[in-house]
Amino acid sequence: MKTRRSALSTTALVAVGVLLAVWTLLPVYHMLVVSLSPSDELFAGRLWPEDPTLTAFSTVLTEGDFTVERFWLQLWNSLFVAVVSAVGVLAIATLAAFAVARLRPRWAGLLTTSALATYVIPLSFLAIPLYKAMANYNLLGSQWALILATITFGSPYALWVLSQYARASIPSELDEAATIDGAGAWRIYFQIFLPLMRPPMVVVGIYAFLLAWNEYLMAFLFLSEEDSMTLPVTLGNFLNSDQIQWNVMMATALFYALPPVLIYYAFQRNVSSGSTAGGVKN
């Protein structure tokens, strides 16, 4: 593959890169400044605390305060819920996308249309009906309530992304070749479809992961015990009184942003490795 030269000069590109980094990082930097500030120096309007301290970070890591007394357990809860949700969304959506985009039944259009109808009531307004549904199914208090809700509301979008990609960039000759070899639909799905779908699956997987990872309202409503809560609920608990421990809150949030970034970093190769489909030719 050839590296294609951009019309823009490298200097301009670097300028864009720097601008982008500043734009992205300024609010994150501000969070860092707040988390490094001692309690009497919060929001003092300085660009760097006069007396920076790592106390807030060590408080979080050692669970050294009432507000973060279950940090590690709840981090684990978040991870469990987010990973299971991501896997669930990927499994359900790749199967459905395979059916819609490759098997192309008559009702493919109907399915994608009705999937989009999921969004007919904005999700934030569905919290109460969903609470009632979960109560009916006796799932209140269980992390599965949160997982199932995330999977259900993440899947329509995942289905759309995956089926678009599957239509656009997997040559149909691949299926046909496999069919001639006598492979059934399931074998095509596992051996041809899934490997070729890696790039959009990474994006969709991260999407589903973050959907569950950062969900506050449903997590709070569906879970009941502090031991099964996810961390966003704890972050929300910082707003319990009007006397807010801003530094500990921001330190917790910064820690919490790391796992998704690391996961993305680990899978990044799969997204930007170029067109997989283009590389496969008969």
Partner: peptide, 20 residues
């Protein structure tokens, strides 16, 4: 169960509406 004061309003509202 302990819930933060502002969030408990939401929880009570939902629970009452759901009959639980």
């Amino acid at each position: 169960q302990f819930y933060s004061t502002p969030a408990m309003g939401s929880k009570l509202t939902s629970a009452v509406e759901a009959g639980r």
